[in-house]
Design a protein around this nucleic acid. Structure first.
Lengths: 144, 144
DNA sequence: GAAAGTTGACATTATCCAATGTTAACTTTT
DNA sequence: AAAAGTTAACATTGGATAATGTCAACTTTC
């Protein structure tokens, strides 16, 4: 029985070691809205295998594709979450993200709509970027 | 009777003067796929008022929003042209862009589909970025 | 025919920024 | 109690890159 790739097991220093980067970088990516880490009750970060893959993907985008962090954030901000999780007209009206375009939805505090009780880390929207293929594929799915 | 803002009247040096940038920059933006200039039969570039607005928009995105050129190109590459101009299944199959995600559609040579005879400069897809508001609005229109 | 346009290549410059280091004050884990 | 985690602020560094400049060979406009 394999360990679930979704289970957060690595502490920040272990994750940094595996990835060959510094813990600063991991915290920066999170501060910049590119990743969300799992937090224990004590607020300690933990990373899953899937998290690591996402981070590798981000590194590739920065170092090989040469898109800067602000650019990546804007691309992520284009994910049409409302269509992905199928939120209602009312939900959209109560969503700060729906009329914004500089930050991904998971960087916004949702207090008054369908996302209130959802965990962004587990959400399809956040995970659209996880496998390193373009979010364009997501758009293709959604647009006939 | 006002001059049509779509009419290309400024040569590159005049446009550069008006914008306060060098002609090199204008050519670079074009080489990078951010803009398309009108060309006379002799291949000389001409710019319209609308072109200038688009360029101001690009400058803002680079200098104020701090997205680098590769980032802008990727954002533009996310425009779902197939949904905007409503091309057929066959058109999509014959479209190099549909399965690419690094370049805007207008950077790709269309030889075998609906875009073959279209002028990208006049196309809704290219002009989605013209007014400096996000292409997210375009996605909102398209995704209910 | 002079001025301004074209492409392409190569160089430079000034700025920016991703990544890391360091320190401080504190909390949690082991 | 030591090791490792947390946030926050500030500094540094190395490399990238947006923007210009220049030169060459040529064409078009005026």
């Amino acid at each position: 029985m394999n360990q679930d790739t979704n289970t957060a097991i690595y502490t920040i220093s272990v994750a940094a070691d595996i990835l060959g980067i510094s813990i600063h970088t991991l915290r920066m990516y999170e501060r910049e809205g590119l990743i969300l880490s799992y937090r224990k009750k004590s607020n300690q970060r933990l990373y899953s295998q899937k998290d690591l893959e996402r981070i590798v993907c981000i590194q590739k985008t920065i170092n090989e594709d040469k898109i800067n962090i602000e650019g990546i954030r804007r691309v992520l901000a284009l994910l049409p979450c409302w269509a992905i999780i199928k939120c209602s007209k009312k939900d959209r009206e109560n969503c700060e993200f729906y009329s914004s375009h500089t930050k991904p939805c998971w960087m916004i505090n949702h207090t008054n709509n369908i996302c209130k009780d959802r965990n962004c880390r587990d959400c399809d929207v956040y995970q659209s970027f996880g496998s390193c293929d373009s979010i364009k594929n997501k758009l293709k799915d959604l647009l006939t």
